[in-house]
Design a protein around this nucleic acid. Structure first.
Length: 461
DNA sequence: GCATGATCATGC
DNA sequence: GCATGATCATGC
């Protein structure tokens, strides 16, 4: 514990003195050289700059000042914009006690009410010791975020109360996540209302939320539209409930009438997303609003055929074959996608030729158990790329041996390109760009559970 | 009707 | 011009 700094300003002033000093000059005990020492840079700053030993107390690092210290990286993108490099991992969630308290008395709030953020720019072609702090500032949650964070905390704790700590997932919540934390993925803890062991998890400010903070306060270029204008709306309803209730009056409306009403080009592939945005009072795209960006919510449009089943499987960004070979599942983009993304499914149902009606929406994130199932598809895909994809030409099509939708309950691999000539490098040649798809039947399961498929014929006679 | 390869339309 | 989200098209 550290009592040297009595006030927040004391801490801040000291922190600002670290700006510009390469970490190698702060590293008094050779921490940066140590292999796989993830907290390395943070510890170097605590020890070498502030002069106290790293600890894992329940109290904030600077107890008297009531400030928690966090050193965190950001990166500059190709277009010059800034992104947080990672989520900000906070204290470990004590499943056994956290549920007993109110938000104000919670372990989360006690420790992280006020955070001294020290930022450094990360770059791949620079050694750790050459990075240095570029910004230091005190972060306290603005009210518009705090109402959401409070709801997030409630959601995490209520899952523990329901004996479901083992099913916690970062995608459950919007800004404050419950991310896995441990020496390895198998660090387990007991939980109060179930005999099942649960993965050790820590509170975290999601990467998308961190990016939002940086753009909003530091790099000053956040001009995203907001959906929620009055924080009071979030006191008695979750964000998802609020969105759903605002859209509800439009359920059952034909797509063409909505396109007319909002003057939207129906040929556009994002027309349905734009309809929803306009209903919510947003001029641009839903995915570009502050809340959607900061919570990493991905809107996806689903068309149901007349028999009530989704018409198509769901595509994602094309992956790069060589990049897949360089990743482990644990740090793969795909795992990251399904762990941290919340999806908003926007559902339209075809009622006759050329006409659809707005059926409704549902928010969803992939459960942990299903993410483990996706891992199999990912591993198989990597194996196939490594061993060499087998291509077969027939009917003027190029068939491959990537996992098919019939091979796995959840996902498969399929082309995702402009055309067949739109290729990506393989270790031994090139082939049409591919991406992971969620199976049509899996999407159907999700919608059934959400009550969005009223008349399930087809596969479910 | 389904699975899977192929391609479209838009915005940035 | 390309990445992205979405949809078309063909053979079984």
């Amino acid at each position: 514990m550290n009592f040297t700094y009595a006030t927040k300003v004391d801490v801040l002033l000291k922190a600002q003195k670290a700006i510009g000093i390469p970490f190698k000059y702060l590293d008094k005990s050779g921490r940066l050289g140590r292999h796989r020492n993830k907290g390395g840079i943070g510890q170097v700053v605590e020890e070498g700059h502030f002069g106290y030993s790293p600890n894992s107390d329940a109290e904030p690092d600077f107890k008297a000042a009531g400030v928690e210290l966090k050193v965190t990286p950001y990166r500059r993108n190709f277009d010059g914009s800034i992104s947080a490099k990672e989520r900000l991992v906070l204290n470990i969630i004590d499943y056994m006690t956290e549920y007993e308290s109110t938000f104000e008395e919670s372990g989360f709030w006690k420790k992280n009410k006020s955070i001294l953020m020290m930022l450094y720019e990360y770059s791949v072609n620079k050694a750790k010791g050459d990075f240095s702090i570029s910004h230091a500032f005190l972060y306290e949650y603005p009210l518009k975020d705090l109402v959401i964070i409070k709801n997030d905390w409630e959601r995490i704790v209520s899952k523990v109360r329901a004996g479901l700590a083992d099913e916690l997932s970062e995608g459950d919540t919007l800004y404050l996540g419950a991310c896995t934390k441990g020496t390895n993925a198998t660090s387990l803890r007991t939980q109060p209302f179930s005999d099942k062991m649960a993965k050790q998890r820590a509170y975290s400010l999601k990467q998308s939320y961190m990016t939002g903070i940086l753009r909003r306060y530091i790099f000053g270029n956040n001009c995203d539209e907001r959906i929620i204008h009055d924080v009071k709306d979030l006191r008695n309803a979750s964000f998802e409930e609020l969105i759903s209730s605002r859209l509800r009056p439009y359920f059952g409306r034909t797509r063409s009438s909505l396109l007319d009403e909002f003057k939207i080009n129906g040929k556009s592939k994002d027309a349905s997303e734009r309809i929803i945005a306009r209903i919510l009072g947003v001029t641009g795209k839903l995915s570009q609003t502050e809340e959607f960006r900061m919570a990493n919510i991905l809107p996806k449009t689903i068309r149901l055929s007349q028999n009530g089943a989704p018409e198509e499987s769901m595509s994602f960004k094309a992956f790069k074959f060589i990049e897949l070979l360089c990743q482990h599942w644990e740090d793969s983009d795909l795992k990251e996608l399904f762990e941290s993304t919340k999806f908003m499914f926007i559902v339209f149902r075809i009622i006759e030729d050329g006409e659809q009606v707005f059926e409704g929406i549902t928010f969803w994130n992939m459960p942990q158990s299903d993410i483990s199932e996706v891992e199999k598809v990912w591993l198989k895909t990597v194996e196939i790329i490594r061993e060499g994809v087998r291509l077969r030409l027939a009917d003027n099509r190029v068939y491959n041996n990537f996992p098919k939708s019939s091979d796995n309950r959840i996902a498969h691999v399929r082309p995702h390109a402009r055309d067949r000539e739109d290729v990506d490098e393989l270790p031994d040649g090139t082939m049409t760009k591919q991406c992971f798809w969620l199976n049509r039947t899996y999407v159907m399961e999700i919608l059934k559970e959400a009550g969005l498929i009223r008349n399930p014929k087809g596969l479910y006679k």
